[in-house]
Design a protein around this nucleic acid. Structure first.
Length: 480
RNA sequence: GCGCCUGUAGCUCAGCUGGAUAGAGUAACUGGCUUCGAACCAGUCGGUCGGGAGUUCGAAUCUCUCCAGGCGCGCCA
C-alpha cells in the first residue's frame, strides 16, 4: 500500500461515463453562498469518480436564458433611452439586477416587455443577442475567478449553458407529442404525471411550453437529459442541485423516462443538499437580508485565517503568512461544507470551521504538517520509505487498521455521492496519527526496525491524508 | 390539501441499505511540555436518539401515527 501511488484503491473493472451537473450559477447575478455546496460537492465527486477510473464529464449548466435576461435587457434598453451609459450599468451586475428586479415587480407593463424580449431572444434576434452576450461574458469571468480561488476544476470548457439547448427545445416538444404525452391545458402544453399526485388529488403537471410560446426550465432540463445520454454517452448523470428542487427532478426524470430519452442502463440521480444557515438557524444572509456574495465570503475566510495564523507564527514573513492563510481559509470553508451529510441543512459558523480542534480543515492540515516536521527533523525522505511496517503498539495497530479502510471509503463516496464519508474517515485518521505520535516515539524508537516501521507508517498516513484531502479538492501545506 | 426533508449530549455534528454498554468535537472539570509542533494528547462529566405504537431474537436505523421546524407544489429558475 505504501509503495502504491493509488494507496490500494483499484480502478473500476467497468468504468462508466458519468456526467456531473454542478455549480450551475445563474449568470444574471453574482455567485453567492448558495453556490458553495453544489460547487464543493460536485467538484469532490468529480475528483473521486475520476480517481476510481470513471470518465467524468462536468457540466456547468449556467442559467443564461429565460425571463430574468428579458428583464435585464428590458431594463438596459430603458436606461439607454433615459440617456444612461450602458457600460457603467454592467460594471456592477448585482446592483443592475436589483434595480431591474424592482422595475419588474412594480410594473406589469415592464414585465410584459421583458417577457416579449425573452421570446425575441429565443428566436434569435441579433440585437438582443449581442447585448445578452455582454452580460454573459462579464458574468462568466466572475465565476471563473471564483473557481480558480476555490481550486475547483471547472473551466470555460465545462460550461454548457441553458441557451445551448435552445435549438433542441422544439424537438423535445415534438418528441413528447409523438410519445403522446403532451396535452393542452389553459393554452399551455403540459405533461400530466399520473405517478405523482398534485393538488386536489389530480396528477401533477409539468409545463413544457407556455401559452406565449416560451419554454421553461423543465423543457431545458429534458433537452439536457437527451444531450447527456445521446451526445455525452452518459451511463450515470448526476445533478448536484439544492434539495428543494427534488420534485422538479423527479418530474423531469419521469417525463424523460416515459418519452424514451433514458435507456435502461442509464441512471439519473439528483444529488440534493440542504441549505446553508446562519447561527440563528435561518438562511445565511447579510444583516440587510441580502444573499452573501461568494467572493466576499472567501475574502473574509482568508482574513480570519490570517489573523489566526499570525497569532501562532508571529515571526513568519508576510508572504508566507498570506499563502498559509489562503490555504487555511479556503480549505476551512470547503471542508466545513464537505464534512457534513449533504442531506441536511448546516450552520455556517466561522469560529467552528476555523478552529484547530475538532473535525475541521485546520486540524487535518495540522496533522499532515506534524508528520512532515518529523521527516524534516529526522532528515528523512518519506518517498524512500518502503517498510516493513510492524504493528506492535496498540496505537500502531489502530492506525494500521484504519488505513486499510481507505479504498472502501473512497468507493463508497463514489457510489453514494457522499463526500462527508471521506471527510469523516480523514478526521478519524488525523485523530489516530496524533495519538500515535504522542504515544510512540518515531525518531527515538527503541530499535532500528521499529523506527523504520514507524516512519513508514507515518509516511503512509501522510500520503492518505494528502490524497484524501486532494480528492475533496483541498490543498495541503508542508508547514503552518 | 398533497408531497419532500429534518428532529441524536448545553452547542456543532457522525451513526440511519437493523446487530452488542448510542459515538465524536466543543463547552465544564482533571492531568500531561528539559523528549519528533501543547495548533497536541490522556481522562471525568454530560443523552427519555422529538412522543407513542408496531415488525423483529434484536430498532437511533424499518412501518404506522402524532408533535415541532424547514422546504416544494400551472405558465420564474
Amino acid at each position: 500500500m505504501l509503495a502504491d501511488a493509488r494507496l490500494g484503491v483499484a480502478k473500476k473493472d467497468s468504468p462508466e461515463t458519468v456526467v456531473i451537473d454542478y455549480s450551475s450559477p445563474n449568470l444574471a447575478k453574482e455567485m453567492h453562498v448558495g453556490h458553495l455546496r453544489t460547487t464543493a460537492i460536485g467538484d469532490a465527486l468529480n475528483r473521486v469518480l475520476t480517481f476510481l477510473g470513471d470518465k467524468v464529464i462536468p457540466q456547468n449548466h449556467v442559467g443564461d436564458w429565460g425571463t430574468q435576461f428579458g428583464m435585464l435587457l428590458a431594463f438596459l434598453e430603458e436606461r439607454k433611452l433615459a440617456g444612461e451609459e450602458p457600460g457603467s450599468a454592467l460594471s456592477d451586475l448585482e446592483e443592475f439586477y436589483r434595480r431591474s428586479k424592482a422595475r419588474f415587480d412594480e410594473s406589469e407593463e415592464f414585465a410584459d416587455t421583458a417577457r416579449s424580449i425573452v421570446v425575441a431572444l429565443q428566436s434569435g434576434d441579433a440585437e438582443y443577442l449581442a447585448a445578452w452576450q455582454q452580460f454573459i461574458d462579464i458574468s462568466l469571468s466572475h465565476c471563473q475567478q471564483a473557481y480558480d480561488r476555490l481550486g475547483v476544476l471547472l473551466t470555460r470548457e465545462d460550461v454548457h449553458a441553458e441557451s445551448a439547448y435552445n435549438d433542441d427545445l422544439a424537438q423535445v416538444v415534438k418528441d413528447l407529442e409523438s410519445a403522446e404525452l403532451l396535452k393542452e391545458d389553459a393554452g399551455a402544453k403540459v405533461v400530466f404525471l399520473e405517478e405523482f399526485k398534485g393538488r386536489d388529488d389530480k396528477p401533477q403537471v409539468v409545463i413544457i411550453q407556455k401559452k406565449d410560446g416560451g419554454y421553461l426550465y423543465a423543457t431545458t432540463d429534458l433537452a439536457a437529459v437527451r444531450h447527456r445520454v445521446r451526445q455525452l454517452k452518459a451511463d450515470r448523470s448526476l445533478y448536484v442541485v439544492d434539495a428543494r428542487q427534488g420534485d422538479h427532478f423527479k418530474q423531469v426524470f419521469k417525463v424523460a423516462e416515459k418519452a424514451g430519452f433514458v435507456p435502461e442502463h442509464v441512471s439519473l440521480e439528483h444529488i440534493g443538499f440542504g441549505t446553508v444557515n446562519g447561527k440563528d438557524g435561518k438562511p445565511f444572509k447579510t444583516r440587510s437580508g441580502d444573499s452573501i456574495k461568494l467572493t466576499g465570503l472567501l475574502d473574509e475566510a482568508e482574513e480570519r485565517a490570517y489573523q489566526l495564523v499570525q497569532q501562532k507564527n508571529p515571526d513568519m514573513d508576510e508572504g508566507e503568512l498570506r499563502e498559509i492563510a489562503r490555504v487555511v481559509g479556503i480549505s476551512s470553508i470547503k471542508y466545513a461544507d464537505l464534512s457534513k451529510n449533504r442531506n441536511s441543512d448546516y450552520i455556517f459558523d466561522w469560529d467552528l470551521m476555523l478552529s484547530f480542534e475538532g473535525n475541521t480543515a485546520p486540524y487535518l492540515l495540522f496533522a499532515y504538517t506534524r508528520i512532515q516536521s518529523i521527516f524534516a527533523k529526522g532528515k528523512v525522505d518519506p518517498a524512500l520509505l518502503e517498510g516493513p511496517i510492524q504493528l506492535l503498539h496498540p496505537k500502531e495497530l489502530e492506525l494500521g487498521n484504519h488505513l486499510l479502510g481507505f479504498a472502501e471509503v473512497v468507493a463508497k463516496v463514489g457510489e453514494r455521492g457522499m463526500p462527508h464519508l471521506l471527510a469523516t474517515w480523514l478526521f478519524e485518521l488525523a485523530v489516530l496519527i496524533h495519538s500515535f505520535v504522542e504515544a510512540c516515539p518515531v525518531l527515538a524508537a527503541e530499535t532500528e526496525a521499529s523506527k523504520l516501521s514507524r516512519l513508514s507508517l507515518s509516511a503512509l498516513t501522510a500520503k492518505c491524508l494528502a490524497t484524501g484531502l486532494d480528492l475533496l479538492g483541498i490543498e495541503t501545506l508542508e508547514k503552518m
